[in-house]
């Protein structure tokens, strides 16, 4: 137990010092912009379909279950005032980040891990190319920017699928749906979602780089790094989600 706690804090310390190192590398050049943009492009293409497919059913499910509940009270017009904050603040950012972790994070970790077990990372260092600058920072920056962008898209997609299952399928009055939507959603909802995604996306890139560079033990180790990246990021996302919701409730936003 004590050893486990000590190991946890040691790992936390290593991640924090790694984050400081990454930040230092980002401030002092050289920066590899072309590599960053290429990576962001590849990851964005790869993430687009999984992220969309993950968020759209959630809007549909909230609508389907919400309609059956609100019908009991004859208040199905206010469904959208529950649907919209849930999509904007909670499900779209959380699911978009989880899918970015699953797709982009694990592929970054697997790529860096493969380079590590083949000795390519050491080869880079021998050529006096800093592996953190050339391999980790582009992945980190790419994740930092593609996650909020994907979140904007998935929020719209979640709303559309929620609308589809509420209005044409379940027969809610379209006027009541949109009126409640406009009266309940504020710019705060949008910024909360984008802010969360910015933070989660950065965490994905950082954890993927950290675990990728620590890969040992050949092919099995590569799979393990990719897997651990996803697991650690999901833990972080869920814990942070709860803390942020509590904070926003306390602030009354």
């Amino acid at each position: 137990m004590i050893a486990g706690v000590r190991r946890f804090f040691a790992l936390l310390g290593e991640i924090l010092s790694f984050a400081v190192e990454v930040a230092r590398c980002m401030i002092q050049g050289p920066r590899f912009w072309a590599e960053t943009i290429r990576l962001a492009d590849v990851l964005m293409r790869r993430c687009l379909i999984p992220v969309g497919l993950a968020v759209a059913p959630v809007g549909a499910v909230i609508s389907l279950q919400g309609v059956s509940v609100f019908r009991m009270f004859g208040a199905d017009g206010i469904l959208s005032s529950m649907l919209a904050p849930a999509i904007f603040r909670q499900y779209s950012p959380a699911l978009a980040s989880v899918m970015v972790a699953a797709q982009a994070g694990s592929s970054i970790a697997a790529r860096i891990g493969t380079m590590k077990v083949r000795g390519q990372i050491d080869a880079l260092a021998v050529m006096s190319v800093d592996p953190i600058r050339y391999v980790v920072v582009p992945g980190f920056v790419a994740c930092l920017f593609i996650t909020p962008l994907l979140n904007i898209l998935t929020t719209a997609l979640g709303l559309v699928s929620g609308w589809f299952f509420a209005v044409p399928v379940s027969g809610i009055n379209p006027g009541a749906f949109t009126a409640n939507l406009y009266s309940q959603v504020t710019l705060v909802d949008l910024w909360v979602g984008i802010g969360k995604c910015f933070f989660f996306g950065g965490a994905v890139g950082l954890i993927a780089g950290f675990l990728g560079l620590r890969t040992t033990g050949g092919a099995a180790g590569v799979g393990k790094s990719a897997n651990n990246t996803v697991v650690y990021t999901i833990i972080l996302i869920l814990v942070a989600d709860y803390l942020v919701s509590m904070l926003l409730l306390e602030l009354g936003l």
Binding site: L53, Q103, S106
Partner: peptide, 22 residues
Amino acid sequence: GAEGVGIATNRAIVHSAVLCIV
């Protein structure tokens, strides 16, 4: 090779998550 293990892991995670949600 080792890359194949990473790709298989990545695809397994993503495809199973998406398919479960759908």
